[in-house]
């Protein structure tokens, strides 16, 4: 691995100051490192300075009624072993379990996953379905932006140089599901991933599809096909078919467009049926 200097800021201000004094190509931000270090090792990037977020107080998990705020550097495994997430936001639990292995999730973080913005992220689709928001901190303070606006078509998030992601907020616990298809079940990249969620307060559905290039997207016409409360079998079938038909698709070594469209429709139907009559589980903590 090409050598670099590793710095450990102790506060948000110190971390932002580290970024201000560096050039964009010369610096990289380290959260869990499970993706970044691979890129450095393969010489895809060659930062001279790596800013570790290890000592920032961002490893938190805060419930406020039905809303959950997740610190960006909290290891993913902490989300998995928190029983209220499995009970109340099952789609998030399923998506977290889909990332790498336990040992990887002991270090990998939600913030790192979002900022690295891999088109194949298993977490972005469920964050879209949950209407999650991202807190960005920078020289001008803090701002909240919807995940949908944070992700971009360029495979990079809408994060200016010198900004960091501090937290992700899920505004309400929702019946939700994340279904994926892979060649191998673990430590493989999904061929497609489908996230669905239903707002218990408003009744509307969200359907998001990932592992399509260049970013996960919501399929609005499929969401709109679910008119009845709860949706009928016919509505679920046509929403799933629309999701397969309307997703943008890539053909690559993991699958053809035809295969992906078929699997999206199958997974969307299964996921919708899984949450159609599910009651929000568990009391607000």
């Amino acid at each position: 691995m090409a050598p670099f200097d590793l710095v450990h800021p102790r506060s948000t201000d110190e971390a932002l100051a580290e970024l201000r004094t560096a050039s964009p190509e010369g610096v990289a931000v380290l959260a869990g490192g499970t993706d970044l270090l691979l890129d450095i090792d393969r010489a895809r990037i060659a930062p001279r300075r790596v800013v570790s977020l290890r000592y920032l107080p961002w490893k938190f998990l805060e419930w406020s009624g039905d809303s959950l705020t997740i610190g960006s550097t909290l290891p993913l495994r902490a989300l998995e072993v928190e029983p209220r997430i499995r009970q109340r936001i099952p789609g998030l639990w399923e998506a977290v379990r889909a990332v790498g292995s336990v040992a990887l999730r002991h270090r990998a973080t939600l913030g790192g996953n979002l900022v690295r913005s891999a088109p194949t992220s298993d977490l972005s689709p469920i964050l879209l379905a949950l209407d999650a928001e991202v807190e960005v901190v920078g020289p001008h303070g803090s701002r909240w932006t919807p995940v949908d606006a944070f992700l971009s078509d360029s495979r990079r998030p809408r994060l200016a140089f010198g900004e960091l992601v501090r937290a992700v907020r899920i505004p309400e616990a929702r019946p939700s599901a994340y279904h994926w298809q892979r060649v191998r079940p673990v430590n493989d990249i999904s061929q497609v991933g489908v996230a669905v969620a239903r707002s218990p307060s408003e009744g509307y559905y969200r359907i998001a599809v990932g592992d399509v290039l260049p970013r996960p997207v919501r399929i609005l016409p499929a969401e709109e096909a679910l008119r009845s409360r709860p949706p009928t079998d016919d509505e679920v079938r046509s929403a799933a078919e629309l999701a397969g038909k309307l997703s943008p698709f890539a053909t690559d070594r993991r699958g053809t467009e035809e295969y992906r469209r078929h699997i999206v429709a199958v997974l969307a139907r299964r996921a919708l049926l899984a949450i159609r009559t599910a009651a929000p589980r568990g009391p607000a903590p």
Binding site: L6, L30, G33, T34, L37, L38, S52, R54, S101, V102, A103, L104, H106, R107
Partner: peptide, 11 residues
């Protein structure tokens, strides 16, 4: 458990 191949010693 962590993967020591994806963890820096200084971390």
């Amino acid at each position: 458990s962590v993967l020591s191949c994806l963890t820096l010693a200084h971390e």
